[in-house]
Amino acid sequence: MSDVTTSHTLVDSRGSACPGPITDLAMAYRRSKVGDVLELWATDSGVKPDVQAWAAKTGNRIVSIDDEPDKIVVVLEIVRR
C-alpha cells in the first residue's frame, strides 16, 4: 500500500556537546516510524560509542558511521519503535 511511506530525516547536532547529539537523536526517534532512516551529524567525539550504545539499547540498526573532515555522520535505520 502506498500510504506507508518511510522518511529520511537529518538531525543536525553539530556544535552540541554530549549528551546533546544522543538527545537530539532520541527526540527524532520519538517522531519516527519503523523503516525510517535518521541521519545524525555531530562534532562531539563521544557520539561514536554513544550511538552504538543507543542503538543496542533501543534495538535499532546502525547503517554506517563515517568520519568526515568537519563532522561525524551516523546513519540509523529505525527497526523498532
Binding site: Q52, A55, A56, K57, T58, G59, N60, R61, I62, V63, S64, I65, V79, R80
Partner: peptide, 14 residues
C-alpha cells in the same frame, strides 16, 4: 557496526 549489532537487535530490553 551494522553487522556487529544486527544480530543482537531482537533480544535487547527497551
Amino acid at each position: 557496526v551494522a553487522e556487529k549489532y544486527g544480530s543482537e537487535i531482537e533480544s535487547k530490553e527497551t
